[in-house]
């Protein structure tokens, strides 16, 4: 495990915790796309099925369980506990536009044509587009609370650090995974526009609002 990988994982965890604490403290999930959170829960569920089949390390197992738990708690907060505060009107991204192509692609382009492998591939492809309902919601309402932008920043940072991790692993271990790398790069590109707004607005103390 290299420094980019561990910082990436910490950044990912921090993003998830920021979102949970924000919802919990404000007792509201306004401005948060429940659809993106459902997709992330689906991503973790389909990817971490190997919890039952392969043991990698204590770290790996613990982090997977934490990510799964946090994802389901977040979905519960949005659609259960604080349902009345959710912005379902603005969360209007059509999930089938993501799920249908992602399912098709995971059957076509995978390492092995086995159930577990196809589900793993599905989770990799789905993660690369799972944030789109959230970004769509922000572009629709034209604004985002500052704390929501911190969540997105750490989520994007996690992706960027994973790319650094892959470059490192390619040079030191001669390791790379084409499916993960291509999807990871696509995913990171989706955050570029947001990163620009984050640096030029949020870091200068302004609220993120679109013209």
């Amino acid at each position: 495990m290299n420094v980019f990988r561990i910082l990436g994982d910490i950044s990912h965890l921090l993003a998830i915790i920021i979102l949970l604490v924000k919802i919990w403290k404000s007792k509201s999930c306004a401005g948060i796309s429940g659809k993106s959170q459902i997709l992330f829960a689906l991503v973790f569920t389909t990817r971490y099925l190997d919890l039952f089949t392969t043991f990698i390390s204590i770290y790996n197992t613990v982090m997977k369980v934490i990510f799964l738990l946090c994802a389901y708690i977040t979905v519960y907060m949005i659609y259960g506990k604080f349902r009345k505060t959710s912005d379902s009107e603005n969360d209007s991204f059509r999930l089938e536009f993501l799920l249908v192509p992602v399912t098709g692609l995971s059957f076509l382009e995978n390492h092995n044509f086995t159930a577990l492998e196809i589900l793993w591939t599905f989770s990799i492809y789905l993660e690369s587009v799972a944030i789109l309902p959230q970004l769509f919601m922000i572009s629709k309402t034209g604004e985002a609370e500052t704390i929501t932008t911190h969540y997105l920043f750490f989520l994007g940072l996690y992706r960027a650090l994973y790319i650094a991790n892959w470059i490192w692993r390619y040079h030191t271990e001669n390791f790379y995974d084409q499916i993960a790398v291509v999807s990871g790069v696509v995913q990171t590109i989706f955050y570029c526009d947001f990163f620009y707004l984050y640096v030029t607005k949020v870091l200068k103390g302004k609220k993120l609002s679109l013209p």
């Binding site: 990988r5 994982d9 990912h12 190997d50 392969t54 990698i56 390390s57 790996n60 982090m63 997977k64 990510f67 390492h111 793993w120 994973y162 991790n165 390619y170 001669n174 390791f175 790379y176 995974d177 084409q178 993960a180």
Partner: peptide, 10 residues
């Protein structure tokens, strides 16, 4: 180069 799976990653 190998084309292995990134199964040890999260």
């Amino acid at each position: 180069c190998h084309r292995r799976k990134a199964k040890d990653e999260l």
